[in-house]
């Protein structure tokens, strides 16, 4: 039995079913991300004066990631146009670039996450506070791990950040901190501050969408492309639907970038 309206539009909606389905799904996605943007506004406006960190993230890296996603957006739509022009070879090329862009985006995001998981705030018993990296760049280190078990040590080598506003200045010399003098040690993970909690929540949710979309696009680029030989119009519609999802992922990032990196 054939599934109806995979190619031919329905008389009542004027659309093939998958297209109606993806737009209904995207409508629900708008509300999902809308809820997180709403939470962000409440947390930011509700923060005590001077406690909301700004410019904690690397703007050039975020800009590059934005450009990567925009590039992937045009390659998706060019892939669809190539199929409409009956040029399967170009479709393969464009969608291949899309998958590559998705991998680059996720790779850069992973680098950013790793940087935060190895970046620490150390509070000492005498009241001094240092921000920077522990020598060896361990992830998710804390005071309990430094004092017990296999990771226990008596002192750590700490590389402080350059003074604020002097990003290009040379790093200060590493300092030795006695573990007994540490009151609190915490990396810049989602538990470190309200800002980082909402940053990781929103970017991880977005990242999951990137991975999900890339998997679908990669499938249609690889084994799923067999349909082009048997049912090219239906295959072209599949590419359009996956493309609509991908553009939505790009749209969300267009707002996430200024909100989380710049404001």
């Amino acid at each position: 039995m054939d599934i109806p309206y995979t190619v031919k539009p329905r008389e009542d909606t004027g659309l093939y079913n998958a297209k109606l389905g993806i737009w209904l799904f995207l409508a629900s996605e708008v509300m999902l991300f809308g809820a997180f943007f709403s939470a962000y506004i409440l947390l930011r406006v509700g923060a005590l004066p001077g406690t909301w960190p700004t410019h904690l993230l690397n703007i050039p890296i975020g800009t590059v990631n934005t450009l990567v996603l925009i590039t992937s957006s045009i390659t998706v739509v060019m892939a669809w146009a190539s199929l409409k022009l009956n040029n399967f070879g170009k479709f393969r090329l464009y969608q291949g670039i899309t998958v590559l862009c998705a991998l680059i985006f996720v790779g850069i995001k992973s680098y950013e996450y790793h940087d935060k998981f190895t970046h620490y705030e150390v509070k000492l018993t005498d009241g001094k506070v240092y921000n920077g990296h522990i020598s060896g760049s361990p992830m998710f280190m804390n005071l309990a791990k430094l004092t017990t078990g296999k990771t226990a040590v008596k002192e750590i080598q700490f590389i402080p950040d350059p003074p604020k506003g002097e990003k290009h200045a040379a790093h200060p010399e590493p300092i030795t901190i006695q573990v007994a003098e540490i009151k609190k040690l915490e990396c810049y993970g989602p538990f470190h501050s309200t800002y980082l909690a909402i940053y990781f929540t929103m970017t991880a949710l977005h990242g999951l969408h990137v991975v999900g979309g890339a998997l679908v696009i990669a499938y249609l680029w690889g084994p799923g492309a067999r349909m082009w030989r048997t049912d090219p119009e239906r295959f072209t519609n599949r590419i359009e639907v996956s493309g609509l999802f991908w553009h939505f992922v790009d749209l969300v990032w267009i707002f996430l970038f200024p909100v989380l990196y710049l404001l």
Partner: peptide, 27 residues
């Protein structure tokens, strides 16, 4: 200003890449 620029970019993506400037009434 930041949201205005983002909105213009979003309009371009939705309008042209997602073809919203010439879509069906149902959408």
């Amino acid at each position: 200003v930041a949201l205005l620029i983002a909105s213009v970019k979003a309009f371009l993506v939705a309008g042209y890449f997602m073809h919203l400037i010439s879509e069906k009434k149902m959408i």
